[in-house]
């Protein structure tokens, strides 16, 4: 009988290890989320730009190159705001600080909180398009019928790869009213 018990013990030992392995792999699926985010921040993999203000100190101007930066705007599904850039594209030198305003209008009679999500194409340029100020850093609140000009100030890193001559910056605006508790609606209509 001791042989049978011995076998059972060995079976249970392997069983425990395998269950532990499976649980770890379940955790690994969740660990992929921060790993992916870090990789994206380093490589610009998903076209996301910096999400907090970049410094513009010690900026060198590269006057030999002109880059076209195009702006695309879109309201996500269920988002009622009208959303468009003041200019469709600008031509800038790398290192030149430029401001572009985006207009939003809330045609409904309800207060809505919006969050703009940027995406840059080509993805390689994403880490080289740096914003010192952007409406996309925080969510924006508009009262019903409200309108606003939202500024975005950016520059292109002179280290931008030489083969890139056109960059498209796209913003998708999402309705996040249900996600956020609005404490301060005084900034709504400017």
């Amino acid at each position: 009988m001791s042989e049978v018990n011995d076998l059972q013990q060995r079976n249970t030992r392997i069983l425990r290890k395998l269950v532990f392995g499976a649980v770890c792999m379940f955790g690994f699926a969740f660990a992929m989320v921060p790993i992916y985010n870090v990789l994206c921040e380093v490589t610009g993999l998903n076209g996301k730009t910096n999400s907090s203000a970049a410094s513009s100190a010690n900026l060198e101007l590269d006057e030999d190159r002109m880059i076209t930066v195009q702006f695309v705007t879109r309201s996500g599904q269920g988002m009622a705001w009208d959303f468009f850039p003041e200019v469709r594209s600008v031509r800038v030198h790398p290192g030149e600080i430029t401001q572009v305003n985006f207009k939003v209008k809330n045609p409904t009679d309800k207060q809505i909180v919006g969050q703009a999500i940027p995406s840059v194409t080509p993805g390689l340029a994403a880490t080289h398009l740096l914003k010192t100020q952007c409406f996309c850093f925080d969510n924006q609140t508009l009262a019903g019928g409200g309108e606003a000009d939202m500024p975005m100030i950016f520059y292109l890193d002179p280290a931008l790869p030489k083969h890139i001559t056109t960059i498209t910056l796209s913003y998708t605006l999402f309705d996040v009213t249900e996600r956020v508790t609005v404490n301060d609606n005084t900034l709504a209509v400017r």
Binding site: G21, V23, C24, M25, G27, F28, A29, F30
Partner: peptide, 14 residues
């Protein structure tokens, strides 16, 4: 199977 089925479970949980 032990290595990747939990990852699928993680995906559907998310």
């Amino acid at each position: 199977l032990v290595a990747v089925m939990p990852v699928l479970a993680g995906a559907v949980t998310m």
